[in-house]
């Protein structure tokens, strides 16, 4: 359960990222956040796992207070929140397995992490995560040798290896071609259903948002301007969220 009460985020340069946001996201929900770039989608996701500090308001993740957490508490909270990025953010010069285990670094003693002496259980978790995204045959390949879609799946596996209760994805398909984007979104949806992991995904393609969002949240200028089901989010709603008429760039697939 994620609860935001009147959360405001102001960046050091004065830009307001979130402006009095109130949201409650129950366990296991699949939420898609839409909005133009700069609308606060990315800030929302980064605030939830503490990469961006809260200026005022209260933010609880599974009952833990993110806004007032100490450094150590923050790391513990983050270890329960998986995160997926637009640019995958893999370490390209090392194996897929090492990349997946990086999700578990919070729970591995430093001296073993230094030596890369992973335990059987840690590797087992890595294998299982890779099996879940269907890329286990690449376990010992270098990350740099994978295609974009494969890299994003490794990134999902890295998040899964954390045993997260919440999964955050910041524009996970923006760097992928349409068929691969569909596949990655399906992976995320399946994981959400199978493991009951609360999932928040930032998207700017409205067709993907409608297709996958059990719930769609529209953001504009740091505020929540729409909160409803994917079915309710018709073109008129999106035009209101985007503040302009829709164009072909707003959909992933060619309009039928």
């Amino acid at each position: 359960m994620i609860e935001l009460k009147d959360v405001t985020v102001r960046y050091p340069n004065g830009v307001v990222g979130l402006d009095g946001v109130n949201l409650t996201i129950p366990d296991g929900e699949f939420v898609v956040v839409v909005g133009l770039s700069g609308a606060g989608k990315s800030t929302l996701i980064r605030t939830i796992n503490g990469l961006v500090p809260v200026t005022s308001g209260s933010l609880l993740v599974d009952g833990m207070d993110v806004a007032s957490a100490s450094k150590k508490e923050m790391r513990a909270i983050r270890s329960k929140i998986g995160m997926i990025f637009q640019s995958f953010n893999l370490v390209k010069r090392t194996s897929v397995m090492n990349n997946v285990i990086m999700g578990q670094l919070h729970d591995i003693p430093s001296w073993r992490a230094m030596l890369g002496a992973w335990s059987k259980e840690e590797k087992e978790k890595g294998y299982q995560a890779l099996e879940r995204v269907g890329i286990v045959e690449k376990t010992w390949t270098r990350a740099s040798e994978l295609s974009g879609g494969q890299q994003q799946r490794v990134a999902i596996a890295r998040a899964l290896a954390q045993d997260p209760s919440v999964m955050l994805a910041d524009e996970p398909v923006a760097s992928l071609d349409p068929p691969t984007a569909q596949m990655v979104m399906k992976d995320l949806q399946r994981i959400n259903r199978e493991l009951n992991i609360t999932t928040l995904v930032n998207l700017h393609f409205l067709d993907l948002a409608r297709q996958f969002g059990d719930r769609v949240i529209g953001m504009r200028a740091g505020q929540v301007v729409f909160d409803g089901t994917g079915a309710e989010a018709d073109d008129a709603v999106f035009e209101k969220i985007y503040g302009r008429s829709l164009t072909a760039d707003d959909t992933l697939a060619e309009p039928a």
Partner: peptide
């Protein structure tokens, strides 16, 4: 990109490769 996976039946997926020496 060539698809390498059948998403749903993950448990029946390809066998794990051996860890390189």
């Amino acid at each position: 990109m060539s698809a390498v996976t059948k998403p749903a039946a993950a448990s029946a997926a390809p066998t794990r490769p051996a860890e390189p020496s």
